[in-house]
Amino acid sequence: MSGPMVKAEEVHKRFGRLEVLTGVSMEVQPGEVVCMLGPSGSGKSTFLRCINHLEKIDSGRLSVDGELVGYRQAGDKIYELRDAEVCRERAEIGMVFQRFNLFGHMTAMENVIEAPIRVKKVKKNEAVLRAKELLERVGLADKLDSYPAQLSGGQQQRVAIARALAMEPKLMLFDEPTSALDPELVGDVLDVMKKLAKDGMTMIVVTHEMGFAREAADRLVMMCDGTIIEEGTPEHFFTSPENERTKQFLSKIL
């Protein structure tokens, strides 16, 4: 592999008249773990959702693993991708949501095997074996047959991570994965994410968990008013942040 996993150039996104992203440019290298910080409404989540085309961008270029997200370029013309092609792109990007979004009518096991069977056409018994492995890896070997409503928030989020990993994504996006959790449940989820980071997964994590950022992130990105105002190593952020807004923000959450 050569190029960056994610490459954003001057990405803009508007909702009606509200400009949410006002030119985001960044690169994420394969195997890199990037944490995105910033006050609410700064566009972190929107940017994350643009990466797997849950939102369409209005201008700029956004590509994953060398392929434009949601579009195809031939010469100087840009074509919208067909639904099937968008689905294929998304299948290679895992996403974990703040509110877990587990399928409520399915057990933990069924949640994990659904997409491999339907989307990747994996045989059911193979999918089940793989799902057992994954659920074991996130510490839920004994919860295979539980429905989401029977699980705690932390357990649900770990199932959601296993569900995303079952598609063997090349990139994982985490949208405030621990914000909806009781404080004592945050640790388990972060542990799973740290393990994942150590195993070399490319990850973009929107989070306010500075402990995680310090320990697992290769790079931190600070967003404000729809653009990136500062980026650097965790070291840089904790010892010598430069931007005024960054300093203010960090002083509030640390």
Partner: peptide
């Protein structure tokens, strides 16, 4: 909830798959 649709889409499921497998049963 819309989150159900988003989760299904983010896994690469098509619009019809999402409706018949995820949304309708719920």
């Amino acid at each position: 909830e819309e989150g159900q649709t988003e989760a299904a889409q983010s896994l690469g499921m098509t619009r019809l798959q999402t409706i018949y497998r995820i949304v309708l049963p719920q």
